[in-house]
Protein backbone atom coordinates (compact mmCIF):
# COMPACT_ATOMS: atom_id res chain seq x y z
CA UNK A 1 0.00 0.00 0.00
CA UNK A 2 1.60 3.27 -1.03
CA UNK A 3 0.96 6.88 -0.06
CA UNK A 4 -1.81 7.31 -2.60
CA UNK A 5 -3.66 4.21 -1.43
CA UNK A 6 -3.37 5.34 2.18
CA UNK A 7 -4.86 8.76 1.43
CA UNK A 8 -7.68 7.23 -0.60
CA UNK A 9 -8.46 4.86 2.27
CA UNK A 10 -8.48 7.73 4.76
CA UNK A 11 -10.72 9.83 2.54
CA UNK A 12 -13.19 6.96 2.29
CA UNK A 13 -13.17 6.52 6.09
CA UNK A 14 -13.82 10.26 6.49
CA UNK A 15 -16.85 9.97 4.18
CA UNK A 16 -18.16 6.97 6.11
CA UNK A 17 -17.79 8.76 9.44
CA UNK A 18 -19.77 11.72 8.06
CA UNK A 19 -22.43 9.38 6.67
CA UNK A 20 -22.87 7.39 9.87
CA UNK A 21 -22.80 10.32 12.31
CA UNK A 22 -25.43 12.93 11.45
CA UNK A 23 -24.46 14.86 14.57
CA UNK A 24 -20.82 15.44 13.61
CA UNK A 25 -20.38 18.12 16.27
CA UNK A 26 -20.51 15.43 18.93
CA UNK A 27 -17.75 13.32 17.34
CA UNK A 28 -14.34 13.08 18.97
CA UNK A 29 -11.46 11.27 17.26
CA UNK A 30 -9.21 9.65 19.88
CA UNK A 31 -5.91 8.41 18.47
CA UNK A 32 -3.81 5.67 20.06
CA UNK A 33 -0.10 6.76 20.09
CA UNK A 34 1.78 7.25 18.09
CA UNK A 35 0.50 6.50 14.58
CA UNK A 36 -3.15 6.43 15.61
CA UNK A 37 -2.76 10.04 16.77
CA UNK A 38 -1.42 11.04 13.35
CA UNK A 39 -4.23 9.15 11.55
CA UNK A 40 -6.82 10.84 13.79
CA UNK A 41 -5.28 14.22 12.98
CA UNK A 42 -5.50 13.53 9.23
CA UNK A 43 -9.07 12.22 9.47
CA UNK A 44 -10.15 15.27 11.43
CA UNK A 45 -8.63 17.50 8.74
CA UNK A 46 -10.44 15.59 5.99
CA UNK A 47 -13.80 15.66 7.78
CA UNK A 48 -13.41 19.35 8.56
CA UNK A 49 -12.77 20.21 4.91
CA UNK A 50 -15.59 17.97 3.66
CA UNK A 51 -18.25 18.92 6.20
CA UNK A 52 -17.03 22.39 7.19
CA UNK A 53 -17.31 21.63 10.89
CA UNK A 54 -14.55 21.51 13.54
CA UNK A 55 -13.84 18.01 14.87
CA UNK A 56 -12.49 17.40 18.38
CA UNK A 57 -9.42 15.20 18.67
CA UNK A 58 -7.63 13.54 21.56
CA UNK A 59 -4.94 11.10 22.56
CA UNK A 60 -5.69 7.91 24.39
CA UNK A 61 -2.63 6.06 25.72
CA UNK A 62 -3.53 2.50 26.66
CA UNK A 63 -0.33 1.45 28.45
CA UNK A 64 -1.81 1.63 31.95
CA UNK A 65 -4.88 -0.32 30.89
CA UNK A 66 -3.24 -3.26 29.18
CA UNK A 67 -3.77 -6.77 30.50
CA UNK A 68 -0.18 -7.94 30.20
CA UNK A 69 1.67 -5.56 32.52
CA UNK A 70 4.09 -7.61 34.61
CA UNK A 71 4.51 -10.16 31.84
CA UNK A 72 6.87 -8.17 29.68
CA UNK A 73 10.65 -7.76 29.79
CA UNK A 74 10.57 -4.07 28.86
CA UNK A 75 8.07 -1.24 28.82
CA UNK A 76 7.63 1.49 26.22
CA UNK A 77 7.13 5.15 27.08
CA UNK A 78 3.71 6.12 28.42
CA UNK A 79 2.11 9.31 27.20
CA UNK A 80 -0.45 11.44 28.94
CA UNK A 81 -3.94 10.88 27.57
CA UNK A 82 -6.07 13.87 26.80
CA UNK A 83 -9.63 14.07 25.59
CA UNK A 84 -11.93 17.06 25.16
CA UNK A 85 -14.24 16.84 28.19
CA UNK A 86 -16.95 16.12 29.13
CA UNK A 87 -17.57 12.92 27.14
CA UNK A 88 -21.26 12.68 28.03
CA UNK A 89 -23.48 12.63 24.90
CA UNK A 90 -20.39 12.38 22.67
CA UNK A 91 -19.36 9.78 20.11
CA UNK A 92 -15.74 8.81 20.67
CA UNK A 93 -14.11 7.16 17.68
CA UNK A 94 -10.96 5.26 18.65
CA UNK A 95 -8.38 5.55 15.88
CA UNK A 96 -5.66 2.91 15.59
CA UNK A 97 -3.14 2.11 12.88
CA UNK A 98 -3.31 -1.69 12.72
CA UNK A 99 -6.15 -3.71 14.25
CA UNK A 100 -4.92 -7.13 15.33
CA UNK A 101 -6.04 -9.00 18.48
CA UNK A 102 -8.42 -6.33 19.79
CA UNK A 103 -6.65 -6.11 23.14
CA UNK A 104 -5.38 -2.62 22.54
CA UNK A 105 -8.89 -1.46 21.71
CA UNK A 106 -10.31 -3.12 24.82
CA UNK A 107 -7.70 -1.23 26.87
CA UNK A 108 -8.59 2.01 25.05
CA UNK A 109 -12.29 1.57 25.90
CA UNK A 110 -11.31 1.02 29.53
CA UNK A 111 -9.17 4.17 29.48
CA UNK A 112 -11.96 6.24 27.90
CA UNK A 113 -14.42 5.16 30.55
CA UNK A 114 -12.16 6.59 33.27
CA UNK A 115 -12.71 10.03 31.72
CA UNK A 116 -16.48 9.77 31.57
CA UNK A 117 -19.36 8.01 29.86
CA UNK A 118 -19.67 8.77 26.15
CA UNK A 119 -22.95 8.05 24.33
CA UNK A 120 -21.13 5.60 22.05
CA UNK A 121 -17.65 4.42 21.14
CA UNK A 122 -16.71 3.44 17.60
CA UNK A 123 -13.48 2.15 16.06
CA UNK A 124 -11.51 3.18 12.98
CA UNK A 125 -8.33 1.43 11.81
CA UNK A 126 -6.21 1.93 8.72
CA UNK A 127 -5.44 -1.80 8.50
CA UNK A 128 -7.42 -4.79 9.79
CA UNK A 129 -5.04 -7.73 9.72
CA UNK A 130 -7.37 -10.28 11.33
CA UNK A 131 -6.70 -12.68 14.24
CA UNK A 132 -8.86 -10.89 16.76
CA UNK A 133 -9.04 -12.50 20.19
CA UNK A 134 -11.93 -10.47 21.61
CA UNK A 135 -15.49 -9.76 20.42
CA UNK A 136 -14.56 -6.36 18.98
CA UNK A 137 -14.88 -5.31 15.34
CA UNK A 138 -13.73 -2.32 13.31
CA UNK A 139 -16.46 0.15 12.28
CA UNK A 140 -14.35 2.00 9.72
CA UNK A 141 -11.55 0.05 8.06
CA UNK A 142 -9.06 1.39 5.51
CA UNK A 143 -7.97 -1.97 4.20
CA UNK A 144 -8.56 -5.59 5.14
CA UNK A 145 -5.20 -7.30 4.95
CA UNK A 146 -5.39 -11.04 5.61
CA UNK A 147 -2.18 -12.14 7.34
CA UNK A 148 -0.59 -15.16 8.97
CA UNK A 149 0.28 -14.90 12.66
CA UNK A 150 4.00 -15.01 11.95
CA UNK A 151 3.83 -12.08 9.54
CA UNK A 152 4.30 -8.44 10.48
CA UNK A 153 2.55 -5.38 9.17
CA UNK A 154 4.97 -2.49 8.84
CA UNK A 155 3.34 0.92 8.58
CA UNK A 156 5.20 4.17 8.09
CA UNK A 157 3.65 7.63 8.19
CA UNK A 158 5.44 10.73 7.03
CA UNK A 159 4.84 12.95 10.05
CA UNK A 160 5.61 10.26 12.63
CA UNK A 161 8.42 8.24 11.11
CA UNK A 162 10.07 10.70 8.76
CA UNK A 163 9.56 8.22 5.91
CA UNK A 164 6.97 8.40 3.12
CA UNK A 165 3.55 6.86 3.84
CA UNK A 166 3.56 3.13 3.13
CA UNK A 167 2.35 -0.26 4.36
CA UNK A 168 4.30 -3.49 3.90
CA UNK A 169 3.49 -7.06 4.80
CA UNK A 170 6.65 -8.69 6.10
CA UNK A 171 7.09 -12.45 6.32
CA UNK A 172 9.09 -13.34 9.43
CA UNK A 173 12.39 -14.85 8.42
CA UNK A 174 13.31 -17.54 10.85
CA UNK A 175 17.06 -17.65 11.44
Amino acid sequence: MDGGAISRALRRIAHEIIERNPDLASVILAGIPSRGVEIARRLAGLIESLAQIPIGTGVIDVSMHRDDVGKRAELPRVQASRLPLPLEHKTVIIVDDVFYTGRTVRAAMDAISSFGRPARIQLAALIDRGHRELPIRVDYVGKNLPTAVGERVRLRLENVDGEPDAVWLIKEEKA
Binding site: S63, M64, R66, G70, V78, A80, S81, S113, S114, F115
Partner: peptide, 27 residues
Amino acid sequence: IFILDTADAFKEVGTRDIKKVPALRGK
Protein backbone atom coordinates in the same frame (compact mmCIF):
# COMPACT_ATOMS: atom_id res chain seq x y z
CA ILE B 1 14.01 11.52 32.01
CA PHE B 2 12.04 8.41 31.07
CA ILE B 3 10.72 8.21 34.66
CA LEU B 4 9.90 11.94 34.71
CA ASP B 5 8.02 11.64 31.41
CA THR B 6 6.13 8.62 32.72
CA ALA B 7 5.20 10.64 35.80
CA ASP B 8 3.67 13.27 33.48
CA ALA B 9 1.28 10.59 32.22
CA PHE B 10 0.40 9.53 35.77
CA LYS B 11 -0.14 13.13 36.83
CA GLU B 12 -2.78 13.29 34.10
CA VAL B 13 -4.50 10.26 35.66
CA GLY B 14 -5.02 12.39 38.78
CA THR B 15 -7.21 14.74 36.73
CA ARG B 16 -9.61 12.03 35.49
CA ASP B 17 -13.06 11.27 36.88
CA ILE B 18 -11.76 7.85 37.86
CA LYS B 19 -8.26 8.27 39.25
CA LYS B 20 -7.48 4.60 39.35
CA VAL B 21 -5.96 2.53 36.54
CA PRO B 22 -5.72 -1.29 36.37
CA ALA B 23 -1.99 -1.40 35.58
CA LEU B 24 -0.91 -3.45 38.63
CA ARG B 25 -4.13 -5.37 39.16
CA GLY B 26 -3.43 -8.69 40.85
CA LYS B 27 -0.04 -7.58 42.15
